[in-house]
Design a protein around this nucleic acid. Structure first.
Length: 284
DNA sequence: AGTGTATCCTGCAGGC
DNA sequence: TGCCTGCAGGATACAC
């Protein structure tokens, strides 16, 4: 569920609410969301101070004193709720892990499907994990040139390429499809076949759609909520994702859904041509 | 290297 | 109403 804009929204909400609070205890209702033994998770958590909250790709990074890190990947339906009510609307429906602060408040990891993962990492483990992730697409230093270099050589369909977190980190199925629609690039085009102008458009479209979605607090289709339990409001601005059979806002051709790589892709057959600008995949 | 498939889970919408 | 199928913002492991 949550991609870069949703995770960024959660992080921004969480940061002022949990920074400088001390973890008193951890309650694990669903051990299967832990990426490590419960005892290790528990022993590394207790008594630590939260020093900050940041984001890496689709991961929430809760920085603790001593340099260790609580890394949260929300999977499809994970939520991180700061001091939620314990009953009534807004109460966690499927609490998996509850972190209690010494001031009586709590941070709840809630996850219907339990595809998410929580890891309490040492500084060294965190360095290794972060190094395995790709570039941050919104970083100032991430230029068209960088995207071009990364795309070069890969035969994989560009939509699959965008979903691979080892290449660029934070893009999921919604924003991959939206960026490709905006850039007028067919999702199945081999990554290395993109031409200069297309790479330029893709770079711009990616950063634009991600920033616009952040400004709207992310996309809620069903499950996503921010740290306060609020929905994001970007979904009406999705131009292709989830709009099968609706007219393309650019040319009126009905949007099509195709499936590859086990995921749906949404595209306009009118403005995202499969063969590319000159046809072929650019191979010699 | 890349692809299709399956797996982890639950809930919801749509068809009959 | 109820049953069944398909589908879902993710990640990973496997065989080919």
């Amino acid at each position: 569920m949550p991609e870069l804009p949703e995770v960024e929204t959660i992080v921004r909400g969480l940061r002022p609410r949990i920074t400088d609070r001390r973890i008193d205890a951890v309650e694990v209702q669903r051990p299967d969301v832990l990426g490590q033994a419960e005892e290790i998770f528990r022993s590394r958590t207790k008594g630590r101070d939260v020093q900050g909250v940041s984001r890496r790709g689709k991961n929430v990074v809760v920085e603790l004193d001593g340099g260790s890190v609580l890394l949260v990947n929300l999977g499809m339906t994970g939520r991180l709720l700061a001091d939620p009510p314990s009953t009534g609307p807004g109460a966690p429906g499927h609490p998996a892990v509850e972190i209690r602060f010494d001031d009586g408040g709590r941070l709840v990891y809630d996850d219907v499907r339990r595809f998410g993962r929580l890891d309490l990492l040492t500084p060294g483990e965190w360095r290794g994990r972060s190094a395995s992730l790709g570039r941050e697409p919104l970083a100032d230093a991430f230029g068209v040139e960088d995207l071009s270099d990364l795309l070069a050589g890969s035969r994989s369909p560009v939509r699959s390429w965008l979903l691979d977190q080892r290449r660029v980190a934070g893009i999921g199925n919604i924003y991959a499809n939206e960026a490709l629609f905006r850039a007028r690039i067919h999702p199945m085009r081999p990554a290395r076949s993109l031409e200069r102008a297309e790479i330029g458009r893709l770079h711009g479209a990616l950063r634009e759609v991600l920033m616009e979605a952040i400004a709207d607090g992310g996309t809620t289709i069903r499950d996503y909520r921010d740290a306060e339990g609020e929905e994001g409001s970007f979904s009406p601005r999705l131009l292709a994702y989830g709009r099968e059979d609706e007219p393309c806002p650019r040319c009126g051709t009905p949007i099509r859904r195709i499936v590859f790589g086990n995921r749906s892709a949404f595209l306009c057959p009118g403005c995202q041509e499969e063969s590319g600008a000159r046809g072929g995949d650019g191979a010699p």
